[in-house]
């Protein structure tokens, strides 16, 4: 690790990129626990619109976030073909429902750009950085922001 750092002269971050609502997003691969096929979620009463429900992940209750709904994007076509990316955020674990997983990318950290301030886009608050790969813009997701609020009643 430190050897490669010396060779390239910088650190790079590994990202898992995926498509959701026709756009390219990514998350730090270190926070990804597993990728699994979609399963029928049990809906939760009084849940925010983007919480699909909960599924059984080997004995634990995993909340599923419909990412396209969360980001205010066009909802994907057939939910049966969706993919769930299980992400770990310290104490919390959740599943992100996306259209498809695309690639694993290694991006040098200096190629990361902060998202421009102008964007009035709702999804902007969920993007922590931007980068360009093969002339495609990849948005790096702010996982904390995507999670449903916790600790208080979601009534």
């Amino acid at each position: 690790m430190t050897d490669t750092e010396k060779q390239t002269g910088s650190t790079s971050i590994e990202l898992l990129s995926f498509r959701v609502g026709g756009q390219d997003y990514s998350v730090d691969i270190m926070s990804v626990r597993e990728i699994r096929g979609s399963a029928k979620a049990t809906s939760l009463p009084h849940a925010p619109f983007f919480v699909k429900g909960v599924i059984n992940l080997r004995g634990t209750v995993l909340p599923i976030i419909d990412l396209s709904a969360r980001l205010g994007l066009q909802s994907g076509e057939d939910t049966e073909r969706n993919v769930i990316i299980v992400v770990d955020l310290g104490e919390r674990t959740a599943g992100l429902m996306v259209d498809a997983v695309s690639d694993i990318l290694a991006i040098p950290s200096e190629e990361m750009q902060p998202p421009p301030d102008l964007a009035a886009d709702e999804a902007k608050t969920f993007v922590s950085a931007l980068t360009i790969v093969d002339s495609r813009m990849i948005r790096i997701l702010d996982l904390e922001a995507v999670m449903p609020p916790q600790g208080e009643e979601v009534a």
Binding site: L44, H46, T60, V61, P148, E152, E153, A155
Partner: peptide, 17 residues
Amino acid sequence: IKGLEGSYGRIPGIAAA
């Protein structure tokens, strides 16, 4: 009983899963 509070939060009318 599987608690929901750790993974999701409290839901009115629901005790657990």
